[in-house]
């Protein structure tokens, strides 16, 4: 990637990728797939889709993006299109899994192996966190309402210059002064203030 491409936000890179893709050039598009895939991953996982299934959902979103490449009117909207599609596809995957789980009633012997409904909250993975502070943050984060966890996961997973690009789909606002905190980040800060084990500095 060139220095110039680095300076562009993810949203701008998405717009350029789409324009070039339509013209038959795939370099910027491939780079954009690599850059935006982590963000899509966290959007999908934030909706409670299990890891393996989330892989398929992310793939499906990209395939669908290419199929719609000619119909996305504003190249500037490429990233927002992806984020909205990812959220929708994840939602429908979760719904499908729950329906399948409800249909497949486990035999008594199968209880241990019964597919659990995936949970985006706190799980055994918190042991992967090395510092007490990170564990505290993850625990407090899990207390946020589901929608706030989804939004903050998405914002946190993006690089800093990309706040603006994803503000639109997360309910944060872009003002003359900058990106607003939004109610979820405000709530997380308040919860952390209340936690004895959390220190700001």
């Amino acid at each position: 990637m060139t220095d110039q491409a680095h300076a562009m936000t993810l949203g701008e890179r998405g717009a350029r990728a789409l324009v070039e893709y339509r013209e038959g050039r795939t370099g910027a598009f491939e780079a954009f797939v690599r850059d935006a895939t982590p963000l899509l991953w966290h959007v999908v996982r934030g909706q409670g889709v299990a890891r393996e299934q989330a892989e398929d959902v992310v793939q499906g979103v990209w395939v669908s993006f290419v199929r719609h490449a000619e119909t996305i009117r504003e190249p500037q909207a490429a990233l927002a299109w992806l984020l909205v599609s990812a959220r929708r596809a994840a939602w429908s995957a979760v719904r499908g899994t729950r329906a399948a789980a409800a249909r497949a009633r486990p035999l008594p012997d199968d209880i241990d192996e019964a597919g659990e409904v995936p949970d985006a909250g706190v799980g055994p993975e918190r042991h992967l966190l090395e510092t007490e502070r990170d564990r505290t943050l993850w625990r407090v984060f899990a207390r946020l309402p589901e929608r706030c966890r989804q939004i903050l996961r998405c914002v946190a997973a993006a690089d800093r210059p990309d706040y603006r690009a994803i503000a639109e789909v997360t309910g944060m606002k872009v003002t003359a002064v900058g990106v607003t905190r939004g109610r979820c980040l405000a709530k997380l800060r308040a919860l952390l203030d209340q936690d004895d084990r959390w220190e700001w500095s």
């Binding site: 966190l129 943050l137 984060f141 996961r153 946190a156 997973a157 993006a158």
Partner: peptide
């Protein structure tokens, strides 16, 4: 700073 830390946490656990 908080978002950056949360980003690292999310990337570590998932």
């Amino acid at each position: 700073t908080l978002l950056a830390r949360l980003g690292r946490v999310v990337r570590t656990v998932d």
